[in-house]
Design a protein around this nucleic acid. Sequence first.
DNA 1: GTCTATAACTGGATAGAC
DNA 2: GTCTATCCAGTTATAGAC
Lengths: 238, 238
Amino acid sequence: MTDNKTQPRRPAPARGRPPKSAKGPDLRQKILDAAEGLFARHSFYGVTTRQVAFEAGVDVALIHYYFGAKSGLFDAVFLRRAEILNKVRLDSLDAYEKTHAGAVTVEGAIQAFINPLLDISLTGGAGWKSYFALVAQVNNTPAWGGETMTRFFDPVVQRLIAVLRKALPHARDEDLFWGYQFLTGSMMLAVSETGRIDLLSKGLCHASDIAAVKERLSAYCAAGLLTVVERHTPSLPA
Amino acid sequence: MTDNKTQPRRPAPARGRPPKSAKGPDLRQKILDAAEGLFARHSFYGVTTRQVAFEAGVDVALIHYYFGAKSGLFDAVFLRRAEILNKVRLDSLDAYEKTHAGAVTVEGAIQAFINPLLDISLTGGAGWKSYFALVAQVNNTPAWGGETMTRFFDPVVQRLIAVLRKALPHARDEDLFWGYQFLTGSMMLAVSETGRIDLLSKGLCHASDIAAVKERLSAYCAAGLLTVVERHTPSLPA
DNA sequence: GTCTATAACTGGATAGAC
DNA sequence: GTCTATCCAGTTATAGAC
């Protein structure tokens, strides 16, 4: 978001977590949870602060107290899990590179990038599922999607590209970037669980079946990337 | 859309095109054009009917006269090009099957499905670009995206699946459906041109470069699908 | 920190003149 | 068909009491 025309006018009373009072339910988190679910389903403009307040069991004014303008709430929702997700994925890529030094494969690198996300979707609960749906939505928003995705997630992606370069030293960068673009499109649509595949397959497949995605997605992307790269470097050494 | 709680109350005075008066600019189309661009960039709730009216150079009341409620306008935008697109793609798949009877390949089928869309994006102008961005956005909307995509585009997709079955007679349907799911995620993100790849690649690649997509996407998806299918049917005949 | 009350405004929609 | 004028429900946001 970072909507330039609606800055929070309050002096941002609570940066980070609520200063004192480790009070039970932690209303700040409840607001974020409610907002996350609603934004994921109905987009930024499709949700009112009142709905968020109602869903969180909280007064409307409290939202402004904690987050300033509505766009501040959105940013907070987006940032909260981005930090966790980035750390998990960077660690995964680091670990893969360390344990496979000199024997880095395309599929291995892609798995190290994709699987942490799918594992979180499998075990992280409803909050994470909403979050992924939200990211998928932002990913496909021309107005500010490209910029937001870049701002929050670029470091991990650059890290993935770097590992892929080791696996494919003769690949052209254009092919790696386009390959990543295709990958992220598939991955984000899969974790946003829109239910389309249920309808399309007449109940044979389920969008919520992330295990089925995990079984297939990295093989799919790895084979695709390899083919694209090979078309441009016909005689692959090694 | 098909928002159940806000039905157009007017008796839908103009179904199809404005009855008489083949008057120059055709305001109905101008409204649709304006709405298409705005919805694509800012989503349904992010656009007001007043904005649409302003952009179209038309009075707000006229929008309600032609389309009833706001959701009616959205549906009209979505439907207008869906009909054209479906026809083009069905024809393309038919033509491919006829000219390659008995020698249907995965990549050929996928090209027959993807390329008409990419060609339209390449030559169809700004309206079509907006339309694809809009479809991409709907595709990733959990609330009604799955249902809407199914309603408008299922026949073509089922047709693609049928052709793929001929190319891969031993493939399991689950793999074909998941393969399609991955394909549509990549394709729709590519044609929504969010500009992310420009930032990510620091200017090396351009989201608007649909020719680059066309060079790579069908090879990518075909290789991916083939790999997924093969993993489950190790000894491929033919 | 939390809630009440309300200001200030924007939104969709329509009646009725032309 | 198109525009003027307007209704009014619902929105963000805040001031100020507790």
